[in-house]
Design a protein around this nucleic acid. Sequence first.
DNA 1: ACGCCTCTTGACGCGTTCTTGACGGGGGCG
DNA 2: CGCCCCCGTCAAGAACGCGTCAAGAGGCGT
Lengths: 225, 225
Amino acid sequence: MTRVLVVDDDPRLQRTLAIALRAHGNEVVTAADGRTAVQSVSEDAPDLVILDLGLPDIDGTEVLRRIRATSVVPVIVLSARHESDDKIEALDLGADDYVTKPFGVEELLARVRAAVRRGSDLGRQLGPVVTGHFALDFAERRATVEGEEVRLTPTEWRLLEALCREPGHLVQQQDLLRAVWGPSYGRESNYLRVYANQLRRKLEPDPANPRHLVTEPGLGYRFNP
Amino acid sequence: MTRVLVVDDDPRLQRTLAIALRAHGNEVVTAADGRTAVQSVSEDAPDLVILDLGLPDIDGTEVLRRIRATSVVPVIVLSARHESDDKIEALDLGADDYVTKPFGVEELLARVRAAVRRGSDLGRQLGPVVTGHFALDFAERRATVEGEEVRLTPTEWRLLEALCREPGHLVQQQDLLRAVWGPSYGRESNYLRVYANQLRRKLEPDPANPRHLVTEPGLGYRFNP
DNA sequence: ACGCCTCTTGACGCGTTCTTGACGGGGGCG
DNA sequence: CGCCCCCGTCAAGAACGCGTCAAGAGGCGT
């Protein structure tokens, strides 16, 4: 679940964004002014900030500067002004994207997805994963089963990576779909069934009785090292 | 820990970059003008330079030229201007990448990572590479297959070199394109397909079933000794 | 100026991978 | 006991990426 901080002094817009974001599976925290925003960044550790430049107390670019003084969280800037000076200044200060009002919610959501994805992808590289039966090297894209090299397709790698990021933990179907097929694939499909099956056939000692790639019915899958 | 030299006369941007870079595990030194920059390159021996072309004292391209006079350190150029002349000139002078302001921090960080990765190898000369079937001497530009000398074109050598720098490792398409055709060739093309094919025909025992020059579909190529 | 070599670029076929729908089975629940 | 919800399985068509070929442009030496 990604946590988004929405900074805007217009309660209506704030509410609209919060609803749209929550509907797409995000957690939302809000701030109505610059000081609260800066505080929230350090206290709530959001994965993304949506920042309106027109705030009542502090100038928007100053808020951005203060955020950047302590954090590299991705920031999407909203602004009613069309002047490109603002845009350039904001991006120079370390904003990751810039949206001019008025904007469509869908457009903003798309940019949110892009920013979050970039932010988390850039997160740590996953180290090698070794079980009693197979070994995975994500950096090199190599998989060996009983010492024998096995070829996995790009989609299989992505699914495996999403699972291995939380070894031993349940990963929800929704999260897996998003991680592998992109943020818009929130709804049910049998992608997961098909690919979990593929992976089991390639990796499990006994694909019919999976030991490492375990189904949690109705919820998701779990990877056991 | 990689040491990055940030050259920019705008203290705010300098600060933003420094924070972002440090947050990602880099050491940062800064310079606000060209003379200091050139001096810092020789004294601090950074692993990477981020150079803003708009400097107060010396023209940016001149700074780059002076850096290149003494060092092969990777340089990422920043510029507010959109004119492609600058870009071409900078790349000709040996810049490794070119970013136009305004830019997002994440984008720059991604380029930093790429440049550092490439740069860590650039210094050293590649020793001879020998497999069961062919031998390559990069210093002498000689290739022999089964003892027979084979002629390779300059582009073929460059591609081969980029692959052999990471023997047994996956090298991504983007990295290969940049290494062979220059930093601006980030996007897809069929250069790689054509030249990988050429190399296989010249070097592989059975070009249809490559053993040394292996394709990783969707990702890149791998050289197996 | 000519010819050779190399690089660039487009087109095409093929194999692989992805997507999508359908079907069957097992376990929980009424 | 029977129903229903999920999951596993399979297969077929579409989409994609790669290998391959060839024509044309450009550079270089003769």
